[in-house]
Design a protein around this nucleic acid. Sequence first.
DNA 1: CTACTGACCTGTTTGC
DNA 2: TGCAAACAGGTCAGTA
Length: 297
Amino acid sequence: MPELPEVEVVRRGLQDHVVGRTVERAVLTGARVARRHGAGPADLAARVAGSRVRAVDRRGKYLWLVLDPPHDDPQALVVHLGMSGQLLVEPPDAPREKHLHAAFDFADDGPQLRFVDQRTFGGLALAGLAPDRHGPRAYGIPEPVLHIAPDPLEPAFDRAATVRRVRAKDTELKRVLLDQTVVSGVGNIYADEALWRAGVHGRRRGAALTGPTIGRVLDHAADVMREALGQGGTSFDALYVNVNGASGYFDRSLAAYGQAGRPCPRCGTAIVREEFMNRSSHFCPRCQPRPRVRRPG
DNA sequence: CTACTGACCTGTTTGC
DNA sequence: TGCAAACAGGTCAGTA
């Protein structure tokens, strides 16, 4: 599932393959892929045509192409991969994918950029760029991304401020880690891994934890995502791939996520899976003791 | 305002 | 064998 490391792998691929090129034509299939673009898919396609790709930027799991339209200010083509979205760079005559939702042709007649998404939780939108309130940024932040907090791997990330925000939350720590307005880029996989590394149970409440403990969890989240990025990301199947269609290898390094019943790499106790927020949580019952007091609900 | 839930999707796996 | 249910989960609209 694309979380920060996987999205960053895609961003780097796009940086290598589309920056400096000019979009000649965009074809969007169906309305759903552009549901976050108010004016609809035809408008998006029309307004992208003729634009030069100046840069590819990212915050958390959001990715955007900074576009230079011929006679207008720069704008952003915002892409979210959702759970199963892929951005692929392929020859224009490559076979059409079953779940192809958008294709971008370039004026140089080189490889196409395609958006493929089996479940269509992801999508595309065109938006204006605004200054980032968290710090200087070359091209600013797209309006639909302004509510997303900095991720732990970017310079604007304020560790102390994030610790304070987590402590101010009257809710469980894992829920806060997944809240993209507090810290972005962390999804279910890296939340479980960070909590395991820190030896903290995700059901402990932010307000009940010490600042140093929360800081440790955040540091582990940054570490594990950095390591995953070094391995090309995590993937369990062909759903997550880089722009060339290749998978990452970090799934071989997971200690907790998806490891139910397997021994904890630190103490040997069997990893437990339980339902949390209508998803799965994985933890070591010995290294990550449950909170002793649980509130009702 | 905050905390929390359900809906959106579809291919694959599991269970009867 | 066949069908249904469970599962994967990021985001946001809507509710309390």
